[in-house]
Design a protein around this nucleic acid. Structure first.
Lengths: 230, 230
DNA sequence: GTCTATACGATGATAGAC
DNA sequence: GTCTATCATCGTATAGAC
């Protein structure tokens, strides 16, 4: 039996019955709506039209299922991010100029928004991603670390080139603030307007541009707390 | 029997046995460490040396206990924030100048950090606050909305005075980004260094100054997405 | 009024039949 | 691979002792 290797079932193309895919799709949908801990395996398996024990058989545990749901989107996402970031770096080196802060940020944050706005099944995944960020689970933390950290180090290095006068400590903190802005914005849909009558009916693309302006200005600001590098 | 009214037991001074206080203290401690959903009532009541049913008797439910834990710190916190913000506004009006962005931000964020650095029992509450922000619960969302929104509207109004050229839509978004930075930083302790070898051994006061620089610059940046107010 | 012991339904997980 | 039966544990509810 040949490997198909094209079906996105998270099983490397070995799946036959589509059970894993149905579970993954249902999980992504319900987790986004009700949250990971707010979703019971019984409800999830009913929605996916599989047996209750199927999740534990195919994934090992409910938490491992969450990890699988994350990785199915995270792996292609980080690949796009890495390619774009490396292109930013290459182009800057070729032109013998410093990379721009805005360009680096756009290479990093852009693919996330495209994923959201793409209209495919990945819709809502960004919201789900933002929620998962605050899951208190070592497994999930490690999943994020494993997939996102390398890309983030790349972003950090490019930003360090773009901002040569800034100490690495300060840049680390600020990159973290920037991440917080994005994560919060992504998961904000479920937090009913913490801001006074905020306009929710806006495209993610517009919000992203607004966010990049905000973050870029924050990153480029003079730093009074960490005057010396190291 | 006279009211003592000084004991911080969350019961208006009517408590005698200290059961409620012990539950609140234990809850704040364990919730901070293991998260709300990661803490069982059995473990919590064992730590507080009370009966399992005590939580439901005194608070009604586990979720209502979380609400009580939050409100015990949130109520005095928002009072300090409101006073400081109103003083900022009064001083600016008296001097017939616009309030400063930095001053408004410091009035809002400063008390949170003081609460953390105060060395009293409230230590770690900020971390707990950051985590609670991402709880998917209508009760918790409403608690935040009820206590934080009024202060936030005040902050919004002052910032709108400080930045008269900025549209309210843009300011709303940016204030939300700023909130995200703070929330993420506050709950970051439990997320093991998503950033490459970031310096964790830093005082919250220093981090706060760094954060305020970041946020202030982001808020003050020219806005290309919302050129016209309204 | 407080506190205790106990019971209930639902959950995530697992073992074994098919 | 799939299913049923079963388990320990969870949050919650309540009756009754002090």
């Amino acid at each position: 039996m040949n490997r198909v290797a094209t079906k996105e079932d998270g099983d490397g193309g070995r799946c036959q019955s589509g059970t894993k895919t149905r579970i993954l799709d249902a999980a992504e949908r319900i987790f986004t709506d009700k949250g990971f801990r707010g979703t019971s395996l019984r409800e999830l398996t009913a929605e996916a039209r599989v047996n209750i024990a199927a999740v534990n058989y195919h994934f090992g545990s409910k938490e491992a299922l969450l990890q699988a749901v994350l990785e199915r989107r995270l792996v292609p996402l980080k690949k796009v991010q890495r390619n774009r970031l490396e292109m930013i770096r290459k182009n800057a080196q070729a032109a013998s100029v410093r990379p721009s802060v805005h360009g680096a940020l756009h290479a990093f944050f852009g693919p996330m928004i495209s994923l959201h706005d793409s209209g495919q099944a990945a819709d809502g995944f960004i919201r789900f991603l933002g929620q998962s960020f605050s899951e208190q689970s070592d497994t999930i933390s490690e999943t994020f670390l494993r997939h996102i950290e390398p890309v983030q180090i790349l972003l950090f290095d490019i930003l360090a080139e773009a901002l040569p006068h800034m100490s690495h400590d300060c840049l680390s903190w600020r990159l973290n603030f920037a991440l917080g802005s994005m994560i919060h914005s992504m998961s904000m849909d479920h937090f009913p307007s913490l801001l006074p009558n905020m306009v929710p009916s806006i495209s993610y693309a517009t919000m992203t541009r607004c966010m990049l302006d905000f973050i870029a200005a924050g990153l480029e600001a003079p730093c009074a707390q960490y005057p010396s590098p190291g």
